[in-house]
């Protein structure tokens, strides 16, 4: 019994701090019915000075189209190491993409902004279609896109 309590105490001590620092953030992007092929979407973060910090997600796997995500491409030079492990399929017209990420708490309320660039085959590119500050107050509030994205929101 004593050993069980000791194990329980140790596992609790190890688990609680990790829960405290974990920030599961769900990015929800609803696409308009724009009628074209799957949209490529680049999700990336800039700091308070507007400098690229890193990528959060890339929807679309063909690297030759990344140049059309011009904000992301300019910031990264198209370096696919930036999106290794965080790349998925492009998002179809009218569909909704939900990406859940375990993000650092320090990203919020510290001047960071989330950008989404969008591109669709044979249609106009749409850099910075979404730009939202990563703040606690902004969580859960839908933001309208300008071309392909109907709305975007993030939830913690």
């Amino acid at each position: 019994m004593k050993s069980f309590m000791a194990v329980l105490a140790v596992t609790t001590a190890l688990t609680i701090p990790s829960l405290a620092s974990a920030a599961q953030v769900t990015l929800t992007t609803k696409m308009r019915s724009y009628g074209g092929n799957g949209a490529y979407l680049a999700y990336y973060v800039t700091n308070a000075q507007g400098r690229y910090v890193g990528s959060l997600w890339m929807a679309g796997g063909k690297t030759r189209y990344y140049e059309h995500l011009s904000g992301w491409y300019r910031a990264t030079g198209g370096n696919t190491a930036e999106i290794n492990g965080i790349t998925g399929a492009s998002v179809g017209s009218g569909r909704t993409l939900k990406v859940t990420l375990d993000l650092a708490d320090t990203l919020f309320d510290a001047g960071y902004q989330l950008h989404i660039d969008a591109a669709v085959e044979d249609m106009r590119d749409s850099p910075n279609e979404i730009v939202v500050p990563l703040t606690s107050a902004g969580a859960g509030k839908a933001v309208s896109g300008s071309r392909y994205i109907a709305n975007f929101s993030f939830a913690r």
Binding site: G54, N84, I86, T87, A89, G92, K98, V99, D102
Partner: peptide, 26 residues
């Protein structure tokens, strides 16, 4: 020209908590 992910682990860019794995739903 398809990106081939080396792993499902996000890059170490300081944005993700270490050891996390993204979940995606469409």
């Amino acid at each position: 020209n398809m990106i081939r992910q080396q792993s499902a682990t996000p890059p170490s860019n300081g944005l993700f908590n270490p050891g996390s794995t993204p979940a995606v739903q469409s």
